[in-house]
Write a protein that binds this DNA or RNA. Structure first.
Lengths: 175, 175
DNA sequence: ACGTGTGTAAAATGATCGTTTTACATTGTC
DNA sequence: GACAATGTAAAACGATCATTTTACACACGT
């Protein structure tokens, strides 16, 4: 496997399961099986690394997820959560860790939020035949809340959120 | 003001706005206006302090919030968010920071989640005249999601979540 | 008046962190 | 067969962190 992707994959896994601050570079270096010199030749700094990790995670997330309709949206979230583990949104968690003080992370989180909001806006618009910011906010809240609450209530919350979102949109279509 | 509450309030504010790891003890000590010796006579360790902060925040949150019905629930959340700032749930953020490795934080977060879930369960049960775990999960997801999404979409998400929750429960009552 | 408790100010301790550097080995290429 | 390029191994660097310690000042109950 390519060294860059090996570093990226290892870093994403460690940041995701242990946190950004809790993951020291020494531990990351050991997990990759490389030397510190090599790692620092492939990555400018820990901050630059986490920014790259988030950018690639965003690309992967929006490749794997489906935004065709409400059912696909929450089914995709359920699949993702089962596969990756229910630890909540990595973007939000890393932002919280760094207290909004790492510029590269802020930019990555903003980009993710922009794309997520855009995709859900498109989904709702297609479902209703018109734009509806109120309905979009509701679906977004259910999506974010299902992600968060699944960390302590399990994946059943995601199914409940799917059913709720479906009902709310249906209600807007046939009032 | 009492020294213990002065330390607690300062710590809560700094942890909330800057994060746990980003807030060094030196900064906290400086913000309290006390000496390090005094602070460490009133608090066993940084971990013990954050546990105490979370316990007191939970008590304050559930004193200020109202769980009478759906409208009161989300109106309370909106008030809280405006007053405290939209930075997402502090319990979840601190848990993310420490990667589930600080036992005292895990316990505090679990206690908060248990109380939140219990209160919303009671609310839904009272509203429907019967227990409904599915509906409870939906309200919980909307609550958590509104808290999270308000950090980047503003407080309008909370109003949307309130309206959505109201509709979902009304639908369960009058199908 | 005296000791005890509680406070301040500031240096010291020991650990850990991100990052760099030194010294050396391996490999593919002209 | 020499030369870069790229890798490993490990020490070193400078900063920061949580926590402890030393030295000293003030108040107050008996």
């Amino acid at each position: 496997m390519d060294i860059d992707t090996r570093i990226n994959d290892t870093a994403e896994n460690l940041f995701d399961t242990n946190g950004f601050n809790a993951t020291g570079m020494s531990r990351l270096i050991q997990a990759t099986g490389l030397s510190s010199r090599t790692v620092y030749k492939h990555v400018a700094s820990k901050n630059a690394l986490v920014a790259r990790v988030l950018a690639e995670r965003q690309a992967r997330f929006f490749t794997v997820m489906r935004f065709d309709d409400i059912n696909a949206l929450f089914a995709g979230l359920a699949d993702w959560t089962v596969r990756e583990g229910a630890r909540g949104c990595l973007f939000f968690r890393l932002q919280a860790e760094t207290g909004g003080q790492v510029e590269a992370i802020e930019a990555a989180v903003a980009a993710y939020h922009a794309e997520l909001h855009g995709r859900i806006t498109a989904l709702v618009t297609a479902a209703l035949g018109r734009a509806d910011t109120h309905a979009t906010d509701q679906i977004l809240a259910l999506f974010e809340g299902a992600t968060t609450a699944a960390t302590y209530r399990g994946t059943s919350v995601i199914e409940a959120a799917r059913a709720g979102a479906h009902r709310l949109l249906d209600l807007e279509t046939n009032p």
